[in-house]
Amino acid sequence: MSVFLDILASVGMWEAVLRIATPLILGTLGVLLCERVGVLNLGIEGIMTFGAMIGWLTVYSGGDLWTGMLVAALGGAMFGFLHALLTVPLGLSQHVTGLGITLFASSFSYYVFRLAVPTASSPPTVEPFRPLEIPLFADIPFLGPVLFNQTAPTYLALVMVALLAWVLYRTPLGLAIRMAGENPHAVDAQGIDPIWLRIGTIMAGSALMGMGGAFLTLAAFNSFFPTMIQGRGWICVALVVFASWRPARALLGALLFAFFDAYQLRLQTVVEGVPYQLFLMLPYVLSIVALILMARRARVPQALMQPYRRGER
C-alpha cells in the first residue's frame, strides 16, 4: 500500500501534474471558446499537431522560444480561420469539416517537417523552456517546487484561464460570444454581426490550441515526431463537456486528468504483472467515463452546431 502513497507524497509527481495539464488546459480553453460561440472544432487534433510542428521548427531554425509559441498561435489561428470560413458563412457540417481540418493540418505538418528535416533517424532537438523559479514563493516547502518552479508557458496557461473567465463573464465581448452560442439572432438584433464574431472567436480558440501543441515540443519535450499528439485534442473535446463549458471547471478537469495520467505513469514503474498498455488506456477510458457522468447534466450551448444565416430560422 505504501508505494501508492509514496508516489502521492513525492514532489515530482505533483510537479508533473501541472506540466501534463498545460497543453490540456490550453486545448480545452480553445475548444471551450469555439463551442461557446456555437461551433464544434474537431480540427483541434490537427491544429495541435501543426502548432507542435511549426513552433518547434521556428525555434529549430533559429527563432527564440517565445517566437515559436507566437508562430504556433498564428498557425493555429490560420487553420481556425479555414475551419470558420467553411462552417460559419458556408454552414458546412461541423463534424466533417473539423475532421477534414485535422487530417489536413496533421498531414501538412508531417509534410513540412519531412521537407525541413529530410533524413534523420532520431528527431533533432531544440533547447526547451527552462523552469522559471518564482523568487520567495519557490522556497515554500513542497508547494514551492510544485507550483512556483514551472516553465513560463504553464503560468501563461493558468493566466489564460482567469483571463478567459473574465472576458466571458465580465465583458460585453464575452456576453456577445456567449449569446452567439445560445441565440445568434439575438446577437444580430444587438447590431453585432454573428458571422464575424464567430469567425474571430474560432480563430482565437484555435490559436490557444496551437499554443497547446507547441508546449509539447518546446517545454514538455524538445523535439517533434509524427503522431505525438496522441489524441490529446480529442481528450480536450471530452474535457469541455466534463467542464460544462466553464473555464474554471475546464482547469479543474485538466488538472484531474493530468493527475491520473501522472499517477499511472509512476504506477507503471512500481506495479508489476500488469501490462503497461492497460495503464496507457486509462486516459482515454477516463475521458469516456467523464463524458458519461456529465452527458445529461452538462448545459450545452443551445446554438452549438447550428449554422446561422440571416433571415433563416
Binding site: 457540417s93 487530417l103 489536413f104 498531414s107 501538412f108 519531412r114
Partner: peptide
C-alpha cells in the same frame, strides 16, 4: 515527402464539402 498523398486526400475532403 510521400506525405503529399495524405495532404492531397485530406484536402480533397475539404474541397468536396
Amino acid at each position: 515527402p510521400s506525405y503529399i498523398a495524405d495532404v492531397t486526400v485530406a484536402l480533397s475532403l475539404l474541397t468536396m464539402l
